[in-house]
């Protein structure tokens, strides 16, 4: 499952509001598979994902290997556009022609078990449904690197199982960096789990799943 080294974080340092969130943090990640970052809230996991995605600047250090990657980011919050329908939220991240995007979005709505809910606005959906739309949007966008920040938050056990299976099917060749508080989830999905503490983020333990 684990490929050659593709993504390298070297001596990454970031201070946020006077707090040292990352202090010479280094990590090497493979080209594909699922890497789990497990740690308490506020230890700096999301900041690390934001730095990898290029959404937040860092003070020093480097991240190499992301230049040619298409990054799909599933945020901790759903971040759906409230003024357009669920299906339109998915279509909004696609690059094809309008009608083609709509059809693709409808397909993803079916895949996440939300058939018939296409035209509903996010405010008309439950927390779990919104999460599934956000997952569908991330998967529809696709890429070689998936940043998944607590991806199954607000999902009931059945939906969670469905989403895990869908995610596994659709992201087989990509590298997934999964941030979670749920150790069981980490053990179930990850090829490698890093147990973190902080801030600043530190790796306390690395566990590799036996295949």
């Amino acid at each position: 499952m684990m490929g050659k080294c593709e993504l390298e974080i070297i001596d990454l340092t970031k201070t946020y509001e006077g707090k040292n969130v990352l202090d010479r943090f280094s990590l090497t990640l493979p080209g594909k598979g699922t890497v789990c970052l497990y740690g308490p809230s506020g230890c700096g996991k999301t900041t690390l994902l934001n730095c990898i995605a290029g959404l937040e600047p860092y003070d020093s250090g480097s991240i190499t290997g992301t230049e040619d990657l298409k990054i799909a980011y599933l945020f901790q919050e759903d971040r759906l556009l409230p003024w357009i329908s669920a299906a339109e939220n998915i279509a909004a991240v696609l690059r094809g022609r309008k009608e083609q995007n709509r059809e693709e979005a409808r397909k993803w709505m079916r895949l996440v078990g939300l058939e018939g809910e296409d035209e509903k606005l996010p405010a008309q959906l439950s927390g779990g449904m919104k999460r599934r739309v956000a997952i569908a949007r991330t998967l529809a966008y696709g890429g070689n690197l998936f940043l998944l920040d607590e991806p199954f938050r607000a999902l009931d056990p059945e939906s969670k199982e469905q989403m895990i299976s869908l995610m596994k099917n659709k992201t087989d060749d990509a590298l997934k960096i999964l941030v979670t508080h749920d150790l069981q989830e980490a053990e179930m999905l990850a090829d490698v789990t890093y147990i973190l503490s902080g801030p600043p983020v530190r790796i306390n333990k690395k566990t590799v799943r036996n295949l």
Binding site: L55, F75, E77, R79, L81, I84, A92
Partner: peptide, 24 residues
Amino acid sequence: KNLLQMASAYRFGAVKTVQRVYLP
């Protein structure tokens, strides 16, 4: 700001960000 960050992560570009996030 979260929606703007989302637009940036999904490479909306300036026109789409204005149309989809700022204008509404």
